[in-house]
């Protein structure tokens, strides 16, 4: 009795694990970065914009950003004229995290040089679940806004 219960349990567990694994591999976050850019900065700080597209069935979070341009890259949420640093930003399952002008953005503090239009800025995005993604942000004119075309 005891043994049967155990094996039944084991089978159930194996099944659950199998399902879980299958579910997992089918739905792990699958991230791709799109539309990245940096408007040519004014002064000693810069903003960065991009979209993280998640085609996986599991949500992820952007937790930090590193760059050779700045030792202090913050994630910012922007609302009603106020921006606030946050510790992470959600990348929804089968959805996207959109960092766009006037909204959430990356903020590069105490930048080490003044990148000019046409140059590129390297960044590495770190996530809660997914592997880091390296992106190059082309520097665009100050008024650049891909949402207005």
């Amino acid at each position: 009795m005891n043994r049967r219960t155990t094996s039944a349990l084991a089978a159930a567990l194996a099944l659950a694990a199998g399902l879980g694994l299958a579910g997992c591999s089918a739905s792990a976050p699958e991230l791709k970065v799109d539309g990245a850019f940096m408007p040519q900065p004014v002064g000693d700080m810069a903003g960065g914009f991009l979209t993280v597209v998640n085609t996986g069935g599991t949500a992820d979070r952007l937790t930090s950003v590193t760059s050779s341009l700045s030792d202090d890259v913050e994630l910012h949420e922007s609302k009603d004229g106020k921006m606030r640093q946050v510790t992470s930003l959600a990348v929804p399952a089968d959805g996207e995290l959109k960092l766009a002008r006037g909204g959430d953005h990356l903020m590069f503090l105490d930048i080490k040089k003044q990148p000019k239009q046409g140059e590129e800025v390297d960044v590495e995005l770190h996530f809660e679940k997914s592997e880091p993604i390296s992106v190059r942000l082309p520097v665009k004119e100050r008024t650049h806004n891909p949402d207005h075309r």
Partner: peptide, 17 residues
């Protein structure tokens, strides 16, 4: 304000252009 990485310089640049 000037410690504003996005909207403030964007607004000023838009008007300047």
């Amino acid at each position: 304000y000037t410690h504003c990485p996005d909207v403030c310089p964007l607004t000023m640049s838009n008007i300047a252009v």
